[in-house]
Amino acid sequence: MLTCAIIDDDEINRLTLEHYVELTPNLKLEASLADGIAGLTFFREGNRVDVLFLDIEMPHLSGLELLRVLTDPPEVIITTSRQDSAVDAFELRVTDYLVKPFDFARFTQAVQRVQSRVVPAAAPAPAEAPANTDLFVKVNSRMVRIDFDEVLYVEALSDYVNIVTAKHKYIVYTTLKALENRLSTFPSFIRVHRSYLLNTQHIESIEDNTANLRDGHFVPIGKSYQDGFYKSLQRI
């Protein structure tokens, strides 16, 4: 939402601009003033707006004179009956100008130009934090951190599971089904046998429905799991 003020000594022009502001959802009118003196008072009282629709030719204090005395003017859209007068206004770094009589399409274009200057571009979305691949598991009386990217496979052992990495084996008191649910956020883990969860990242080859892993490990692929397993692989 942009706040705005209108300063124009012509009542018809002011009413036209007020109507256009009402038709524009992202504009809120804070003041509509009849001359430059009233505009100067408005700003010297500490009032602030995002955009000012300012007539150039006004008695006592013209629009250009008002701009020269304001120390921190808002974005300005000049309203004038003479296009050549707008050239002088650009020396004061106005954003745009509207030549009377106004039309709503040109008014909207000027407002959009202000909005592109006032409203900062959306900040890029923060980079997603890398997924946490660690889990703590209880091994005997210790809580051990395991990076599941390093796990080759998990084997069911009745009420326990055997979590196997290239260097270690961890016997953990849980069921394979419970651990499978915990690993549901790890897409590389697939149930390939009633007794095995396999980390497909570590497959080196597949032969005779057996996944051959690094360091001589292998995992059987159960018949009822073969269709789903092979469909999950990227293969040529």
Rank of each mutant, 00 (worst) to 15 (best):
N162V: 10
V161P: 01
A129P: 08
Y196S: 03
L152D: 00
A178M: 10
F189H: 03
R194I: 08
L197V: 05
K167F: 06
Y196N: 03
Q201F: 09
S116G: 11
A110C: 10
T165H: 07
I206V: 15
H202A: 08
Q201T: 12
D84W: 07
A86K: 00
T133K: 13
F186Y: 15
K167Q: 10
R145E: 05
I146M: 07
E150M: 09
K177W: 06
S116V: 11
L183Q: 03
V192T: 06
V137D: 05
F104A: 11
S188D: 13
A166Y: 07
L179T: 06
F90H: 07
A129F: 05
V172D: 05
H168E: 14
V119A: 02
L152M: 03
V119F: 04
F136N: 07
H168R: 13
P126A: 15
E91S: 13
N209C: 14
Y153P: 01
I146W: 04
T80D: 06
S184H: 14
P120W: 03
Y173A: 10
Q112T: 11
P130E: 11
Y153D: 01
K138S: 14
E204T: 10
F186M: 12
V111E: 03
D147I: 03
V154D: 00
R93I: 09
A110F: 05
T185G: 14
D134H: 13
F102Y: 11
S188E: 14
N199R: 03
T133G: 10
T79K: 05
S205K: 15
F104G: 09
Y196G: 04
L92S: 02
M143S: 12
